[in-house]
C-alpha cells in the first residue's frame, strides 16, 4: 500500500512534467496543425544557457527565470524563422520542417559547443525528502506537482477568461472564421507559440534540474514524451494532453516497479507497447476529437 502510494506520487511528479510538455504541443497543434518535433529544443536551448549561467556564477534563483524567458523567446524565434514560412502547408511538410528545426538546433550545439556532456549543479534540496507517515516524498516531486497545478490553473484561467484565450480557442476550432471576427492570425499564432514556450519553460525548469547536464540531443526525450502524451490524450484536445501526460508518467513509474528485476530497464519499451495497444483499441486517443470527413 505504502509502496503504491509512493509510486503514485512519483508517477504524478513525472507525469506533471509530461503534461506541461504535452499541453504546449497540443496548443500549437490546435492552432496550426503542426505536431512540433522541435518542442524539445525549448529545453535544450535553456539547458545550455543554464550551463553557461552557472559558469558565470549565477545561481538557481536567477537561472529559473532565465530558463522560462529563454524558452518563450526560443519558441517565438523558431516560429518566426521557420514555421511562419510553412503556414497552411501540408501536414507532411509541417512535420518535416519541425524535424529539421530540431536537427539544426542539435547540430548547432554540436558544432559550436561540443558533443560532450555539459554538467551543472543540481539544487541543494534536490534529493531531500519529507516524511509523511510512512511515505518519503521527494521535495522535488512535490514542487513539480504544486507548480504544475498552479500553472494549469493559470492556463485554464487564461483560456477561459481572457480575450486572448478566447481568440486562441476560436482560432483552434475554426481559423478562418476567427479571422472573419477580426482575430489577427499573426498575433494568435505567436501567442500560441509563446504559451507553448512558457509551458515548456516551466517543464524545462524541472527537467533541467533533474538531468543535471545537457547534450546537443537533450531535447529528444522531452519532445517524445510531450508528443506521445498529446497523442495518448487525443490530438487536438488540451484536456487530453494533460491527462495523457499524467497517464504516461504513472505508467512509467508503475511499470518499473511491477516488472521483474531482470527486465526493468526495458520499461520504456513496455510503455510503448502499451501505447500501441491503446491505439489499436482506441485509435483517436483517450479523449479523441471526432474527425469529420469532408466530401
Amino acid at each position: 500500500m505504502t509502496e503504491l502510494l509512493q509510486n503514485l506520487i512519483d508517477g504524478l511528479g513525472r507525469g506533471s512534467i509530461y503534461a506541461l510538455l504535452a499541453l504546449g504541443v497540443a496548443v500549437v497543434f490546435g492552432i496550426m496543425h503542426l505536431l512540433n518535433f522541435a518542442h524539445g529544443e525549448l529545453i535544450t536551448i535553456p539547458g545550455y544557457l543554464t550551463y553557461w549561467a552557472f559558469n558565470q556564477g549565477w545561481n538557481w534563483w536567477t537561472v529559473v527565470p532565465l530558463i522560462i524567458v529563454s524558452a518563450v523567446l526560443s519558441s517565438l524565434l523558431i516560429e518566426r524563422v521557420a514555421f511562419s514560412r510553412v503556414r497552411g502547408a501540408s501536414d507532411f511538410t509541417l512535420l518535416l520542417t519541425s524535424f529539421g528545426v530540431h536537427f539544426i538546433v542539435a547540430a548547432g550545439f554540436l558544432l559550436y559547443v561540443s558533443a560532450s556532456v555539459k554538467p551543472y549543479p543540481r539544487p541543494g534540496w534536490f534529493a531531500d525528502t519529507i516524511a509523511v507517515g510512512s511515505l518519503n516524498i521527494e521535495i522535488f516531486d512535490l514542487a513539480v506537482i504544486v507548480v504544475t497545478i498552479i500553472v494549469l490553473a493559470g492556463t485554464t484561467w487564461l483560456l477561459q477568461r481572457t480575450m486572448f484565450g478566447l481568440a486562441l480557442r476560436a482560432a483552434a476550432s475554426d481559423f478562418d472564421t476567427a479571422r472573419l471576427m477580426g482575430v489577427k492570425s499573426d498575433s494568435v499564432i505567436r501567442g500560441a507559440f509563446a504559451l507553448s514556450g512558457f509551458l515548456a519553460g516551466i517543464a524545462g525548469v524541472f527537467w533541467i534540474m533533474r538531468e543535471g547536464q545537457v547534450t546537443p540531443t537533450a531535447g529528444i526525450n522531452p519532445m517524445l514524451q510531450g508528443v506521445l502524451a498529446a497523442l495518448i490524450g487525443g490530438l487536438g484536445s488540451l484536456r487530453g494532453a494533460v491527462l495523457g501526460g499524467l497517464v504516461l508518467g504513472l505508467a512509467e513509474v508503475l511499470l518499473r516497479s511491477w516488472l521483474p528485476v531482470g527486465i526493468q530497464n526495458l520499461t520504456t519499451g513496455f510503455v510503448f507497447v502499451m501505447i500501441a495497444l491503446l491505439f489499436i483499441f482506441r485509435p483517436g486517443g483517450l479523449l479523441s476529437v471526432p474527425q469529420v470527413e469532408r466530401v
Binding site: L35, L224, L228, P283
Partner: peptide, 28 residues
C-alpha cells in the same frame, strides 16, 4: 487502425515511437 492516410500525423508518431522503442531496447 490509426486511420493512416497520406500526411497522417498519428501514423507518423507511431513510426517515430517504433524508432524509439528499437533504440531503447537496443540500449537496455
Amino acid at each position: 487502425r490509426s486511420g493512416a492516410q497520406s500526411g497522417s500525423v498519428a501514423a507518423t508518431v507511431i513510426t517515430l515511437a517504433l524508432l524509439f522503442v528499437t533504440h531503447e531496447v537496443a540500449k537496455s
